[in-house]
Amino acid sequence: MSAAVSSRPETLTGAPFHYCPGCTHGIIHRLVAEVVDELGLREKAVGVASVGCSVIAYNYLDMDMQQAAHGRAPAVATGIKRVLPDRLVFTYQGDGDLASIGLAETVHAAARGEKITVIFINNANYGMTGGQLAPTTLPGQVTSTSPGGRDVDKMGYPIRMMEMLATLDGPAYLARVSTHSPAQIAKTRRAVKRAFEAQMKGLGFSMVEILCTCPTNWGLKPVEAMKWLEENMLPYYPPGEYKVAEGV
């Protein structure tokens, strides 16, 4: 990562991130900005921020952006893309936003093959509101609203978005990646690039699910959080490319 860290991508404003120490939101912002730079799309991009810790992503990404209601980012992006079909339109959403309150908007944007890209931050809890149970919280995982650990009998099972969406014909590119090592972060960057390219080629819906840490609400130090992610999230949410349409 050393070369990438040395200079700021043009697409980042330089405003200091408000994220907690060790939070992976900052890394993902940077990767998105780098890819936008690399593809030369900053002036053709419209991003959609969601409701969650990344609500003010528009303070960090130096491009046109809209802030959407909780869960509605894919619908907002749909509206933008239908008006401006040649722009790069993407959403940046947490797991509560995308897989709980906004599940319908996510699934239908995917099913329509809406030519937008969804950057999906899976940190296995609701970060902004203080670490409650999310649809992605692992069985047994302790959160503030599952103090005894997620009891699947009463709270059901986590949702694997990639596996679900891969059953649809609308998506052109679906990939799950992680942030727990430099090699994984490099893979994440490649996946974001492929997703944006799939969109710009007009191939359909694209989404990258990124396994992320939330050290603050997990009650772990940043390094421990990386380890927890690797040991617990990876087995439940296997990384990989779940859909790669012809031409991607």
């Binding site: 959407a68 209601a69 619908a75 907002v76 749909t78 509206g79 933008i80 239908r82 908007e105």
Partner: peptide
């Protein structure tokens, strides 16, 4: 979804 699509399109 419809009203949020309106939000996006109006913003565009």
């Amino acid at each position: 979804a419809a009203i949020n699509m309106v939000y996006g399109a109006a913003g565009a």
